[in-house]
């Protein structure tokens, strides 16, 4: 297997600019102030951040560029933002407001052209597409609009369409594992890991350092995201903003280089 450059990425879900966290896309609970969280992630040398606004669509808006400007004036690291981004202009404005990458999900359903239009302007490397999937026991179904609607298309076909439209990365998120801290869905990532050139970021289920080892050992995947593991602690899900410690991080990186 080729060497990998590992990335471990805290993802942050927000609603009305407050950090929240759910389980299987439901029962979201209040986590706290987003600025407190991003400062801690930055201080702990997190590789990147993904910040998604769950409420953007309901408000008939897209990710709040002013919030992004405030965040990116405080922390100097790669930030990916998402939430109902529907036009090239919006994507460009977010990049100019301090995002390294923009994240698309529901707005590309039946509209892969949006990926092409945006990547033609800001470059493929800055376009991340999120795909949320749920396993019904037989196959992985694709869901959008915060997991509420099902998209009737085969997963690999959907991924091929995203890649050929010019996306730079895919976050493949398991709704069944999301928020459960049961470990990554290795089977899901083995199914797709060596089919595509672009990086696939695993998301959903991370529980511990060992979850990452399991994922990176058993698949070609080199990047993983988690929110639960980096904002909740213990059996009672106490709020604790956290990241891998420096030794764990260096150990993890060096194992695959």
């Amino acid at each position: 297997m080729k060497k990998k450059r590992i990335r471990v990425i805290p993802s942050i879900l927000i609603e009305n600019n407050i950090m929240i966290k759910g389980k299987n896309f439901k029962n979201h609970k209040y986590i706290g102030d987003i600025f407190n969280a991003v400062r801690i992630y930055s201080k702990k040398n997190a590789h990147e951040l993904i910040i998604l606004d769950k409420s953007a669509k309901e408000k008939n808006n897209y990710f709040d560029a002013n919030l992004l400007k405030k965040i990116s004036s405080e922390i100097f690291m790669p930030i990916t933002v998402g939430g109902n981004i529907s036009t090239v202009k919006q994507a460009k404005f977010l990049i100019n407001s301090g995002a390294e990458k923009i994240f698309l999900n529901s707005t590309i359903i039946n509209n892969y052209e949006l990926i092409r239009d945006i990547s033609n302007e800001i470059g493929s490397q800055s376009v991340v597409v999120g795909v949320d999937v749920m396993n019904n026991g037989k196959e992985y179904g694709i869901f959008y609009d915060n997991g509420k609607k099902k998209y009737e298309k085969q997963l690999t076909d959907h991924l091929y369409s995203i890649v050929s439209a010019g996306a730079g990365e895919i976050v493949l998120n398991s709704i069944s594992r999301e928020g459960t801290r049961r470990g990554f869905d290795i089977n899901l990532y083995q199914k797709v890991h060596n089919k595509f050139e672009i990086p696939i970021i695993a998301s959903g289920g991370a529980n511990s350092f060992d979850s990452f080892l399991e994922l990176f050992d058993q698949t070609y995947i080199s990047a993983a995201a988690s929110s639960s593991m980096f904002c909740l602690f213990g059996n009672n899900d106490a709020v604790l903003i956290n990241y891998l410690n420096q030794n764990e991080l260096i150990d993890l990186i060096n194992r695959y280089e």
Binding site: K4, R5, I6, R7, H47, S124, E169, Y220, S222
Partner: peptide, 14 residues
């Protein structure tokens, strides 16, 4: 070239 590297784009801390 994908034959040379793991993924394209190269994203990460090198």
């Amino acid at each position: 070239l994908i034959s040379q590297v793991n993924n394209i784009p190269h994203i990460g801390w090198s």
